[in-house]
Structures are given as structure tokens and as C-alpha cells.
Amino acid sequence: MKNIITLVAGLIFGLGLIISGMTDPAKVIGFLDVAGLWDPSLMFVMLGGIAVAFVGFKFVQNKSEAIFGDPIHLPGRTHISKELVIGSLLFGAGWALAGFCPGPALVALGAGYKEAFIFVIAMIVGMYIHDHLFKACKITKAA
């Protein structure tokens, strides 16, 4: 049952992205292109998402275990690091260039777009470069 719920959560997430219009890079770029004709739809996606997710996080606020018994792991870091800011700036740059962020790219991949396939492969390589080359290099330097 807990595996089915997890799968269904992923499915609902994807359906939400499709219905909201976010799986269309042209629509995302329509939001990011404030100098052109501006489409503020993305703000409504965030608004709807935050409002419902807020209730979910409130529900688990003082609990240590989820309904299926897993421990609740919420991010605890509060430090505003330069990695947080620089990483987010780099992410925003890539997001604007293609109009894809990770979720919609995976949904478009499932719809069979070869451009999404290329983007996702490059994204996985980018993740790998960060986790295995960049971070490893920094750890070596620190030691």
C-alpha cells in the first residue's frame, strides 16, 4: 500500500504539472520573459501548490512518524550558504535557456519528446559532475 501511494503521489504531481501548463517550455519562458508579453500563470501554480502543501506540512509538524511508519525527514538546514545562492542562480539560467525544470522535463520525457530526453541526460550528467567531481574535488582540497 505504501508503495502504491508513493507511485500515485508521483502520478498526481505529473498530472498537476500537465494541467497547470508547466510541461510546455514556451509557457514557462512566457513567465520568465518579463520584457515580452508576460504570462503570470506560473505564479498561480506556485500559489496553488504552496496553499495545499502548507496544510500537508502543518499536519506532520509535530509528528515524528508518517502514516506508514517511516520517520519524517524534513530539511533542517537554515544557513544561507553561497552554494545555495550560486547553485540556484545557475539553475535559473538553465531553466530560462530551455524552459524546463526537472519535473516538467521528466513528464515531457514520458510523453516521448526527444528534446526532453536530451535535456534529462544532460541534467543527470550535470548532477553527476556536481556530486562526484566538483564536491569530491572540494573535499580533497579541504583535507
Binding site: 505504501k2 501511494i5 508513493t6 500515485v8 503521489a9 508521483g10 502520478l11 498526481i12 504531481f13 498530472l15 498537476g16 504539472l17 500537465i18 494541467i19 497547470s20 501548463g21 508547466m22 498561480f44 501554480v45 506556485m46 500559489l47 496553488g48 501548490g49 504552496i50 496553499a51 495545499v52 502543501a53 502548507f54 496544510v55 500537508g56 506540512f57 499536519f59 506532520v60 512518524e65 508518517a66 502514516i67 506508514f68 517511516d70 520517520p71 519524517i72 525527514h73 524534513l74
Partner: peptide
């Protein structure tokens, strides 16, 4: 669509943490 994304997020944290 955003509310569905929020629902999926809520389900994942409530049922699986």
C-alpha cells in the same frame, strides 16, 4: 494544476515523511 502538485507533496510527506 498547482493544487494537484501541492496535494502530491502533502501525500508524500503525510504518508511517507
Amino acid at each position: 494544476g498547482g493544487m494537484l502538485i501541492g496535494l502530491a507533496t502533502a501525500l508524500l510527506v503525510i504518508f511517507r515523511g
